[in-house]
Amino acid sequence: MLKYIIRRLIMLIPVLIGVSILTFSLIHLIPGDPARSMLGEKATEAQLESLREELGLNDSYIVQYGRFLGDILQGDLGESIQSKEDIAIQLLHKLPATVELTIFAMLLAVIIGVLAGVIAAVKQYSWFDNISMTGALFGVSLPIFWLGLMMIWLFSVTLNILPPSGRLTSGVELNTITNFYLLDSILTGNWLAFKDAFLHLLMPGLALGTIPMAIIARMTRSSMLEVMRQDYIRTADAKGLKKHFVIFQHALKNAALPVLTVIGLQFGLLLGGAVLTETIFSWPGIGRYVYLAVLGRDYPIVQSTILIVATIFVLVNLLTDVLYKYFDPRIRYE
C-alpha cells in the first residue's frame, strides 16, 4: 500500500510538468497582452514596451517557461502582474475559501445524495423514488447562476433570513489562523463568527452542491438497486437480519464503490468549477481569482494557481483510490 502511494506520488511529477506546459501554452496562445491589460487602453507604446521588457514578456517562450519552472521549483509562485501581490499570500487566503466552500458543498451533496439514493433504491417506484429522481434530473440540469440568483432572491430579498453574499458580515470580527472561517471560529471559540460564517456558507454551498448531489443520488440509487438483487442480500434478509442493518451494512458498502469514484471526481470538478458560484455569491475564492487573471492576462497567477489546483485534484483522486480498499478489501495495490 505504502509503496503504491509513493509510486503514485512520483507519478505526480510528470503529470504536473504536463499540466504546467499545457497551461503555459494555452494562456500564451490566447491573443492579448498583459502589459496592455495592465496599463489600459490609455498607455502609450513606449510605456507598453518598457513594461513588457520589465516583465520579461519579450523573451522567447522557452526562456519564459524556464524562468517560471525555476521559480516554482524554488517554491516561489511569483507575483501578480496587475496588482504586484505575492501569489502565495493571495492563495493563502483564497484557497481556503474555495476549499471550505467545496468541502461544505460536498458534505451536503454526499449526505443528502446518498440518503436520497438509498431510500429511492429501497423503495423503488415509490412516490419518494419518483420525486427525488425527478428532482435529481432538475438538479443536474439547473444552471448554477440561475439557481444562485433565485436563492438570493428568495432567502435574502424576500424572506430575509440568509445573508446574500460574502463570507462574513462586515463588522463581525474573526481572528484568522487557517483562513478556513468555520475552523478558525471554532479554534478561537468565536461562536458569533461561527454562526455568521455558517449562514454565509449555506446558499453558495447548496448552489455548488446541487449538481454533485443529483449525480450522487442517481448513482447511489442505480448502484444500490444492482446490489440489492444479489444473492447475499437475500441470504442476509433470510437470516432475519434487521432491514436497516442489511441496507447500510451489507448493501451500501458494496454499492459504495462507483459512488466513491463519482464523489472523488466531482470534488475535483467543484474546485475548478466554483467560478460561477463564487461570482454570484461574491465568494473570494480561487475560481474567480483565476478567471479574472485569465481575462487580465495575468500569466503568473494562472500558471501557479492551476498548478496548485491540479496537485490537489491528483491528491484527491489518490485518496479516492486508497479509500476503495476500505470499501472493497478484494482490491490490492502493489
Binding site: F145, G148, I152, V157, P164, T279, I280, F281, S282
Partner: peptide, 9 residues
Amino acid sequence: PDNGARFME
C-alpha cells in the same frame, strides 16, 4: 461581481 446579485443586495 454579479450585476443581478448586487442589485438584489
